[in-house]
Design a protein around this nucleic acid. Structure first.
Length: 154
DNA sequence: GCCAACGTTGGC
DNA sequence: GCCAACGTTGGC
């Protein structure tokens, strides 16, 4: 099973937004970065665990837990001229961009702020610390379980 | 609002 | 294929 961290600006799409969706599921669309695309298309599988991270706010933090419910498939918003992340180079035959579907599991009892992650000896290898701009990040099982403990889960 | 990091674009 | 210019992200 894989472990991942997905970033989102809560003003755009928050963990609470995800929880409020039918069945708490949503398409994770709009990713327009090739490295993140490769993870979405090739590596992220149903059942993988995801940490939901809120970025670009005064105290950025991991706030909730999700599970992947559908593996990568073409992100049709790239084909829609009226969509925010329209890409004129994408076609139905060569969609370029991919998305997965995720389901919210639960909010962490306590948010885990970036400042805490930076200082924790087991977490300094997380991409958040060195590659903060990558929007879909692979993490280890140890990093995942450590964040859960910091967030108040057994 | 600033700035560092880094990804993308385009000229050659 | 290189590299400078430019745009975006995201922490502070």
């Amino acid at each position: 099973m894989g472990y991942w961290l997905f970033k989102s600006e809560p003003g755009c799409f928050s963990f609470q937004d995800l929880q409020s969706r039918p069945n708490a599921t949503e398409h994770w669309d709009g990713v327009r970065n090739f490295q993140a695309r490769n993870f979405l298309r090739d590596e992220i599988k149903p059942g993988d665990r995801v940490l939901f991270y809120h970025s670009s706010i005064p105290e950025p933090a991991v706030v909730g837990l999700c599970t992947v419910v559908r593996e990568g498939y073409p992100d049709h918003t790239a084909l829609d001229p009226n969509a925010d992340h329209f890409d004129p180079k994408a076609t139905p035959d060569k969609p370029i961009w991919y998305m997965v579907d995720v389901r919210a599991d639960q909010a962490l009892p306590a948010e885990v702020p970036l400042a805490v992650i930076r200082e924790h000896p087991l977490l300094t290898g997380m991409p958040l610390v060195n590659r903060s701009r990558l929007s879909i990040q692979p993490i280890t099982e140890e990093q995942y379980t450590t964040i859960l403990q910091l967030g108040g889960l057994p």
